[in-house]
Design a protein around this nucleic acid. Structure first.
Lengths: 141, 141
DNA sequence: CTCAGTGCAAAAGCTTTGCATAATA
DNA sequence: TATTATGCAAAGCTTTTGCACTGAG
């Protein structure tokens, strides 16, 4: 089984559990999101290379569905676009370089740490944590 | 000196250092932002109670200027609006309740903690840290 | 065959911009 | 008085929605 078939299979399963219909558009979009942090328009452009008739509305609608299902997470790197990525299982955060624009991911159980140390957070039931640190990477600083 | 005069004086000084012109609109907008986390439209509505002729463009332009000067920080609580607050001196983060919408602030030197513990962050020069945890507050959980 | 999903085009936000007018320094 | 800032209206972007058609189950 090729890696590509495997990935398609994984997407098919992910969609299937939910009772949603498995359309070629959804499988393709999910496939593309796995490539990294992308915004709607980038997903649209990449998807149209495979399916030229795909519409931007479908991209947005699919992203909403996947977000609602918890398969995909919406991020806020900059002011104008949203970015999307497949939802990670653990705390999962980002360093955004103001110089070259690269996004460095890191995993760390920050919500646990915050809950332990911050009085305000003690009685808060945390659902989601997003940490975004901007600055300069080792090359750009 | 009343507290109100003092606050006006503070805004005047804040604007003055920068070489910008002190207009009644800018002073008013800065005054309003000090009240808490507000989005452009809320600022606009509150500002118009005092200056009915103020335009929304002026609000946006002023916010951009203040942001560029580092007097005000732009936040990303939800998908559709930006929120603004006067820039705090130390690490300063937010718990957003999905139930009642309240925003709980907390201070904690998280960037320092991350830099110490996360390998990816070690050689990163951090300029700004934004932590946003969503979930449910003690009343809503 | 049926209903969920799609494409297209149009609308709906929020935010920015051009230009003449008003106000600051 | 010389610019800078404002107000208004119009444009620009991203995102959402209505509707008829298509395709998955």
């Amino acid at each position: 089984m090729t890696s590509k078939t495997k990935s398609l299979e994984r997407n098919r399963r992910a969609l299937n559990v939910t009772g949603l219909r498995i359309t070629s558009q959804r499988a393709l979009i999910l496939e593309i999101i796995r490539r990294g942090h992308l915004d709607a328009d980038e997903i649209y452009r990449q998807a149209r290379e495979k399916q030229p008739r795909l519409s931007l509305s479908t991209v947005y609608r699919t992203l909403q569905v996947l977000k609602k299902l918890g398969l995909v997470e919406e991020l806020h790197f900059d002011d104008t676009h949203h970015h999307y990525e497949v939802k990670p299982s653990s705390d999962h955060h980002h360093l955004v370089c103001l110089g070259c624009g690269q996004v460095i991911e890191f995993h760390y159980p920050l919500s646990r740490y915050v809950k332990r140390n911050v009085p305000e957070a003690k009685e808060f039931k945390v659902i989601e944590t997003e940490v975004r640190m901007t600055g300069y990477c080792s090359k750009c600083r």
